[in-house]
């Protein structure tokens, strides 16, 4: 199998927010990539998870770890699989959610 990592990530700045647009699968192989994108602590981080096709507990652990090291973490439009995993693990309320990048502006 020709394995390119089944994830694409792009980083951007939106006002005070550092935004990661994530597309693909967040699992054992790819979650570390996401986590290492936010090594600088205490920032405002927005994770655009609208295009996440798959996530397991490795992915969720990365989200939790980012949240632990950052001042603020918001999920943007988490896809159904992300919502499903959050709900299964009782973490629906653990992350604030913005419906879109634009909606971030109304969050201080």
């Amino acid at each position: 199998m020709a394995d390119q990592p089944p994830i694409e990530m792009s980083l951007a700045q939106h006002g005070t927010w550092r935004v990661a647009h994530v597309r693909g699968d967040l699992d054992l192989a790819t979650a570390p990539h996401l986590e290492s994108s936010f090594e600088e602590p205490d920032g405002h981080v927005a994770l655009d998870l609208a295009k996440v096709r798959f996530i397991d507990s490795s992915g969720l652990r990365a989200l939790v770890s980012i949240r632990e090291h950052q001042a603020r973490v918001v999920l943007i439009a988490p896809s159904p699989v992300v919502q499903r995993l959050l709900s299964l693990t009782g973490m629906t309320d653990a992350f604030p959610v913005a419906s879109s990048l634009a909606a971030l502006d109304s969050m201080e």
């Binding site: 699992d27 054992l28 798959f54 996530i55 397991d56 507990s57 490795s58 159904p80 499903r84």
Partner: peptide
């Protein structure tokens, strides 16, 4: 159905992650 498919894939991933 998609929700079952997603759940099944999560289970499969969790099992394998435990053996890696």
């Amino acid at each position: 159905r998609s929700v079952d498919r997603a759940d099944l894939m999560v289970l499969l991933s969790e099992l394998i992650a435990a053996a890696v």
